[in-house]
Each structure stands twice: as structure tokens, then as C-alpha cells.
Simulated scan of single mutants.
Amino acid sequence: MQLVTMPEHFIGLMSGTSLDGVDGVLVRWQADQPSQVLAYACQPFPAPLRQELLALNSPDGVNELHRAALAGNAISRAYAAVVRQLLQQADLPPSAVRAIGAHGQTVRHQPQLHDGTGYTLQLQNPALLAEATGITVVADLRSRDVAAAGQGAPLVPAFHQGVFADAQTTTVVLNIGGIANLSILPPSTQADAVSLGFDCGPGNALMDWWCLQHTGAAYDDQGRWAAGGQVHPALLQQLLAEPFLQQPPPKSTGRDLFNPHWLQAQLQRVAATIPAQDVQTTLTALTAHSCADAVQRHAGDSGRLLVCGGGALNTELMRQLQTLLPAYIVTSTAAQGLPPLQVEAAAFAWLARQCLHGLPGNLPTVTGAKGPRILGAIYPA
């Protein structure tokens, strides 16, 4: 099927592994390009919902199915509130929007188990969201890729390829949410070049958790706390020894691996008393080093690095990335016209559009799927 050339409006909703809330964008599409972001909204999760989602990431809960269903309803109500805010900002009625691409909240990500099959689970209630907004919803956007033997993640590289690729220079897009992932985009003039993408390790999840435990703040604002501490070399070496960081792509991960239990186990192995601030500094270095190492191993010696997600607002983390990658120009995606907190939501608006037009949403070279697949389940308005 061919994409239509008339302008269309799509909404993308994203709540990532950082668990900080919902980011939403309302995008006007012209042909296959997002011609304008008409509205952006962000709403934090209420503290009880955030705590429940954190608990549901752990497999040892009580009455999990009931609690997960209720949490899915709460997420969809939060999504609906963001949709109403977007429509109000853009001064558009629900009928003007073709569809909502709704990611849901990942609570399990096990794409490849021992028998060669796996699953990925994102909590939400798409039927409730369609009912509450009067807009068609496209959801469950990862499962088909997993069914085709893919990782189901990352899905954003296909969107990055269309929006950020440069004609002459290798472009690396680094999304630092709760987990960090890379999109490696060769120059668009190289006809035989193949884009690559994968999760490269922890992003903000461990830093945010540690900061909350020891300062009461939900995150380290601009990395100021980390900037005032010292890297603990033995701890950093221990953290960087995590086998996942050395695995070749395709690969994906989440809170199933990089969680407080993992961090506490690493701290115990070091067997040293480390000041809390120095742990924060070392966790920031872990994210910077694991990301920079992935760039150097898979993207070449030089290029431009565009950073999106909440990590792009961490001044100390951005400074470390530039130091570790001196041959790269490290900057936020805002330099390319799309602010860092809007990129992932815009990608899920794009995925909804791909689904409705019968077009693939995955890159098999990224996820490892058997081939291109149309992603998502459609819940009509």
C-alpha cells in the first residue's frame, strides 16, 4: 500500500521504563514525514500508580493478574487525560485524529526464552482508551515482531532512519530513557548500507532509583549530584562486566535485568563501603561508558551523536559522552528540530500510521525478526 499525500493527524503516547509518566505528541503528517508537532503534553504518574508499576516489574507479587488489570485501566485513563490536553492545545476535535499509537507500560520483556520463543508485555487497556477518547487506538506494537523471532525492541530506529539520517555522515541516535538504546544510521547516499539498532544497557533507571533512595528527588537534576562525587573504579569495573553489555546485537533488555536487585548484588560483590554520592557518580559513568563503548564498536570512529530521552537533559551525562567520544559531535535531537522528550512519542505516532496504512513498522536488521511485519492491534473508535 502507498501512503496518502494528504495531511493526517496522529497521536503518539509513550510511557517508558523510567516510569516517570506519559509523554504525548499530536503530529501532522505530510506524505511520510512528520511535518509539524502541533502539541506536546507530559503528565507524571501519580505516586501510588508508579509504585504499583514498579512492584509489577517484580515476579514475586501477590494477586498480580488483578492488580495488573487495574493498573492497565489506570494507565489508559492517564493516557486519555494526555489526549484531551493535546486536542485542547491543538484546537482539534477527536474526529480530526486518525489514530493513537499507545505504547503501554512494559512490565515484562522476555523476547527469547530457552525454547526459542518469548513474549513482551505492556500494560494498558486500549479498548478503554478508544472508548474514553473517541479515537482509534493502535496498541500491542511489539508482540508481532517477537512472534517473528525478533526482540520486539527497539522499534524506534525505523522512525529515526526517516527523520534523522544524513546524506553524508553516519548518524547515531542515542535514546536514554530508563534503558538506553542506539540507532546507527549510515549515510543515506550509501545504497547498500544497513541501519542497526539495539538496547545498549541501563539509561536512567538505576540512577533515578538510587537518587530517590538517598536524596528523595525523583532524578538527579542535570546530573549535579553525580558531578560532585567521585567514580569508584572497582565498582565501575564490576558493573561494566555485566555479560549483556558484551553481547552482540540484536539484543534488548529492561528492568528484568537492570533493577535494584541487580545493583545491590553488584555492590555486595565489591565489598566496600562507598558513599552514596560516589555510587551515583559511578552509575552515571556506567551509562556513559556502556553507551560510548557500543557506539565505538558498532558505529565507527566518527560521526554525529543525537541524544534524546530524559538523559539528554542530564548535563553531566552529556559531558561524559562528549569526553568519551571526542570524534563525535554530541548534541540533543532538538538541534534537528525534535525536542528530546518528544522523539519516542512521535515514533509511536508513526508506528500507528504505518499500521493503518498496512506498512511494516520494524527493521529486521535491528530486531532480528524473520522479516518486515505490520505491527499493532487496532481498536476502532
Rank of each mutant, 00 (worst) to 15 (best):
289 H>C: 15
145 D>E: 14
228 G>Q: 15
196 L>G: 08
231 V>Y: 07
209 W>A: 14
374 I>D: 06
343 V>N: 08
63 N>T: 06
380 P>Q: 09
90 A>E: 04
366 V>A: 11
368 G>W: 01
21 G>L: 04
369 A>V: 01
337 G>V: 11
207 M>Q: 13
238 Q>H: 13
81 A>F: 01
324 L>H: 10
307 V>G: 12
294 A>P: 01
134 G>M: 12
314 N>K: 02
42 C>G: 13
226 A>D: 08
201 G>L: 07
60 D>W: 10
306 L>P: 06
39 A>F: 10
321 L>A: 09
61 G>P: 05
301 D>T: 14
326 P>C: 00
219 Y>I: 07
250 P>V: 08
134 G>P: 11
282 T>P: 08
347 A>G: 14
185 L>P: 03
176 I>T: 09
91 D>F: 00
35 S>D: 15
127 A>W: 01
165 A>E: 06
39 A>R: 06
299 A>V: 05
73 N>W: 00
368 G>D: 00
262 W>F: 15
180 A>R: 06
377 A>D: 14
278 D>W: 10
162 G>R: 14
162 G>M: 10
296 Q>R: 15
125 N>S: 15
68 A>W: 04
272 A>C: 10
303 G>P: 04
105 Q>K: 07
300 G>N: 08
287 T>I: 10
283 L>M: 08
51 Q>L: 12
160 H>V: 11
368 G>H: 00
76 S>N: 01
81 A>S: 09
210 W>P: 06
55 A>E: 13
294 A>G: 09
64 E>F: 02
183 S>Y: 08
151 Q>K: 10
207 M>P: 05
58 S>Y: 05
38 L>K: 05
312 A>F: 05
